[in-house]
Amino acid sequence: MITTSRIVFRPVQPDDYLRLYEIESDPSTAMTWRYRGDLPPLQEYEPALWRQTQQIMVVEGRESGTVVGYLQLHDVDLRAGHGWFSLYSGPEHRGSGLVMEGLMAFCEWAFGNWPIRWLYAHSFEHNVHAFESGLRRGEAVRLGVLRERMVVGGALTDVHVIGIEREHWLASPLRRRFNTLRARFT
């Protein structure tokens, strides 16, 4: 568990599944996430949620005490030393920065607990702005863009491939600031 002034970052519990399902069911983004509008019924959700997944960590807002989003570590390949992550934010918390703070906690947790060199993520064009500050600062790199890769809501959209390298994360000023602030709450 990682605690900051604004969030608690912790492993998912079965009690959280309903909230995760609500987040994934949001109509404004249901088409963009991995089920692409074809979210399984709640009774089939748990196995679908954990498919190819090593761990799910939720981000809880300290003020609200509710789960504001979650991060999923999936498709880890220990031979290659990399894994993928997905990031989900509740619609009412987008733009608050809470889940992106959760991403910092996730990097700290993932690189601290898994022998992986790279974390990768796919991001649709209309979501990639969430990564832009990290890309500008250099904690994340854009490994490329798959042009017109997917159809979302009837329109073709680009898919950006984002990478976070272990050594860059460990040496980043952002990580130092994050851990300094975090130390005040642990």
Binding site: G144, V145, V161, G163
Partner: peptide
């Protein structure tokens, strides 16, 4: 045309 490059992807 190359669209994505994963550096040092695996051994």
């Amino acid at each position: 045309e190359i669209e994505v490059r994963y550096p040092d992807f695996t051994q």
